[in-house]
Amino acid sequence: MPSKKMRKSKEEKAKPREKIRRKIAEALELPKDVTLNVPRLTMIGTSNLIIENYKGIIEYERDKIRVNTSIGIISITGEGMIIREITSEDIMVEGEINSLIFMK
């Protein structure tokens, strides 16, 4: 199939490109979340959590949210949590956050 071939060739191309990118980024001291494709977590007190660069949500309850990211699943437990905003780039959780667990 031509489309599969195309993707494969793209991936092969992307690998050395990624390497170069990482090296340049380290040399220039750019923030890692931009270059390494890892999520960036921002917390404001215990009431607000913003996860940028995530993959998707796995579970959503008022007392537990699990979010899939490139470094594994982030499990958030708390009380009365709502998803204030959700876009393809970031997710903003509001409520009483009690714990964050990173499951690799």
Binding site: I57, E59, I82, I83, R84, E85, I86
Partner: peptide, 21 residues
């Protein structure tokens, strides 16, 4: 499958906010 519903919305660029279970 509410989580799936949310993920699909995001995937299709539908902006959701104030999600309350």
């Amino acid at each position: 499958f509410l989580e799936k519903f949310i993920n699909m919305c995001i995937h299709r660029q539908i902006f959701l906010w104030d999600i309350k279970k």
